[in-house]
């Protein structure tokens, strides 16, 4: 099966800056694909390379097998939900949603009917007459989504679409987007810097760092077996142990990751690994206790309800050696 989107050693340089640096990736049709990374890691540039707002300096991009090197954005059958939504302020909601059909020469009646249909899909029936300025952030986001989907794109690109929403709305939209993608079966490529968003929504995800893909895989693979220190730290703030410490604790002599929730606090004299509590951060469902051990600081996630140690107390840390995950790369 041809991939929906394929990058063949693609680079995009801005002067001396290598925003995207030799990226290879393949997005299977019908998947929810997330590109995760800190700001400046090249994920948004990758999205813009797919939509055609950027041209690769090197490499080839294929959309459903077709080389799009010479195809301008308006001739690519992909649509984007922009970070700032980019709704046209002089058009009302219905005209905004129908815009893509209008420029393709679809008649007004069909256009309006389709626009209404899409507005119903994003639960904004009856908002057609309003101007974007009269909508809330969440509603604008839905209009942007409807405006993209009305064109029946083969790939939908979403550039941090939930970034401007508050937490509650954000979680609701995450579920809705996911459900919508399942229902429509369109390939979604989703850019985010929020690791929990990427983990919860994506079928597959690529973690970006410095213009390169640090790791690509399913969320559980990436969470459980981070390939590099960067991935371990960025996805789920794992503990990263230097090779010496990992070996002392019974692992391989590699940089290794150890999830905070895999650790348990015990009395100081019952285990080989002991340290001093240097910080406590209450997270609601649990508390992240930072313990200074010789050679590293470890975060331990203590579920709420379990007694907490005092700041400065000596504690022991216990875990299963099997949770110690050696990484391929530093």
């Amino acid at each position: 099966m041809t991939a929906a989107v394929e990058f063949d050693s693609v680079s995009r340089h801005f002067g001396p800056v290598r925003a995207v640096d030799g990226v290879n990736l393949s997005v299977a049709e019908g998947t929810f694909f997330a590109m995760l990374g800190p700001s400046g890691s090249g994920k948004t540039t990758c999205l813009r390379l797919i939509s055609g707002f950027e041209k690769p300096t090197h490499g080839v991009i294929r959309i459903f097998g077709q080389d799009v090197s010479n195809t301008p954005p308006n001739r690519r059958n992909v649509n984007t939900v922009f970070q700032d939504y980019a709704l046209f302020p002089h058009l009302n909601v219905r005209e905004n949603v129908g815009y893509g059909l209008m420029v393709k020469g679809v008649g007004r009646a069909t256009r309006n009917a389709k626009a209404e249909e899409m507005l119903a899909l994003v639960k904004l029936d009856g908002f057609g007459e309003r101007k974007p300025a009269q909508l809330s952030g969440g509603q604008r986001q839905r209009v942007a989504l409807a405006r993209a989907l009305v064109n029946e794109p083969r790939v939908l690109l979403l550039d941090e679409p939930l970034g401007a929403l508050d937490l509650k709305l954000r979680e609701a939209m995450q579920d809705e987007l996911k459900a919508l993608q399942k229902r429509l079966g369109i390939t979604f490529v989703f850019v985010t810097h929020d690791q929990s968003e990427a983990l919860s929504m994506a079928d597959r995800l690529a973690v970006f760092n410095h213009g390169k893909i640090a790791q690509i895989g399913t969320p559980s693979e990436i969470y459980a077996r981070p390939r590099t220190r960067f991935v371990a730290d960025f996805v789920g703030s794992s503990n990263v142990l230097p090779p010496e410490l990992a070996q002392r604790l019974g692992g391989a002599q590699n940089w290794s990751s150890l999830r905070p929730e895999a650790l348990r606090l015990t009395a100081a004299d019952t285990t080989a690994l002991t340290g001093t509590v240097t910080g406590l951060r209450y997270l609601g469902a649990g508390t992240r206790v930072t313990v200074a051990v010789s050679g590293a600081e470890l975060g331990v996630l203590v579920p709420t309800g379990t007694p907490l140690p005092d700041q400065g107390a000596a504690v022991g840390i216990a875990f299963d050696t099997s949770d110690l995950h050696p990484m391929e790369e530093a």
Binding site: S51, G52, F53, P72, P73, N74, R75, V78, N79, T80, F82, Q83, D84, A86, L87, F88, Y99, G100, V103, K104, R147, A148, N151
Partner: peptide
Amino acid sequence: VPKSMLEASADLGAS
């Protein structure tokens, strides 16, 4: 006029 407005137009198929 933000640049994203022009990009959105091209993205939606406008010449």
